[in-house]
Simulated assay, not measured.
Amino acid sequence: MDEPGTVNYIQWRSAADLQARYDGRKFQQKTVPLFHKLARTVRLLKTELAFTQHHPALEQGIEISPERDDYTVVIVFDTRPEDQKELLETLAQPDEWITTVPGYRSHTYFRGVDGTYVVNYAQWDSKEAYDAFHTLPEEQRPAGIRRGRERARTLVTGRQANTYRVTHSRSALPAKG
Score class of each variant (00 low, 15 high):
Thr52Val: 09
Thr52His: 07
Gln53Met: 08
His54Met: 07
His54Phe: 12
His54Ala: 14
His55Cys: 04
His55Lys: 12
Pro56Thr: 07
Pro56Met: 09
Ala57Lys: 13
Leu58Asp: 06
Glu59Gly: 15
Glu59Leu: 05
Gly61Pro: 10
Glu63Val: 10
Glu63Met: 07
Ile64Leu: 10
Ser65Cys: 10
Ser65His: 12
Ser65Pro: 14
Pro66Trp: 03
Pro66Cys: 10
Glu67Lys: 13
Asp69Asn: 11
Asp70Ser: 11
Tyr71Gln: 02
Tyr71Cys: 03
Thr72Asp: 00
Thr72Gln: 07
Thr72Met: 08
Val73Lys: 09
Val73Tyr: 04
Val74His: 08
Val74Pro: 09
Val76Cys: 14
Val76Pro: 12
Val76Ala: 14
Val76Phe: 10
Val76His: 10
Phe77Cys: 11
Phe77Asn: 14
Asp78Gly: 14
Asp78Trp: 01
Thr79Asp: 08
Thr79Val: 12
Thr79His: 13
Thr79Cys: 15
Pro81Thr: 07
Pro81Cys: 05
Pro81Glu: 02
Asp83His: 15
Lys85Pro: 02
Glu86Lys: 13
Leu87Met: 08
Leu88Gly: 07
Leu88Pro: 08
Glu89Ile: 13
Glu89Asn: 15
Leu91Gly: 11
Leu91Met: 15
Leu91Cys: 14
Leu91Ala: 11
Ala92Val: 07
Ala92Thr: 10
Gln93Asn: 08
Gln93Cys: 03
Gln93Val: 13
Pro94Asp: 09
Pro94Tyr: 08
Asp95Tyr: 03
Glu96Ser: 06
Ile98Gly: 01
Ile98Lys: 00
Thr99Asn: 11
Thr99Leu: 02
Thr100Glu: 12
Thr100Cys: 12
Val101Phe: 09
Val101His: 07
Val101Glu: 05
Gly103Tyr: 04
Gly103Arg: 03
Gly103Pro: 10
Tyr104His: 08
Tyr104Gln: 01
Tyr104Leu: 01
Arg105Asn: 14
Arg105Val: 13
Ser106Gln: 02
His107Gln: 13
Thr108Phe: 02
Phe110Val: 06
Arg111Ile: 00
Arg111Glu: 07
Gly112Cys: 05
Val113Cys: 06
Val113Met: 03
Val113Glu: 03
Val113Asn: 00
Asp114Leu: 01
Asp114Asn: 11
Gly115Asn: 03
Gly115Asp: 00
Gly115Tyr: 09
Thr116Asn: 14
Val119Phe: 01
Val119Lys: 03
Val119Ser: 03
Asn120Ala: 07
Asn120Tyr: 00
Asn120Thr: 00
Ala122Gly: 13
Ala122Thr: 05
Trp124Thr: 05
Trp124Val: 06
Trp124Gly: 02
Asp125Lys: 02
Asp125Arg: 04
Asp125Gly: 01
Ser126His: 01
Ser126Phe: 01
Lys127Asn: 14
Glu128Val: 11
Ala129Phe: 04
Ala129Trp: 04
Ala129Tyr: 06
Tyr130Lys: 00
Asp131Ala: 13
Asp131Leu: 13
Ala132Glu: 06
Phe133His: 14
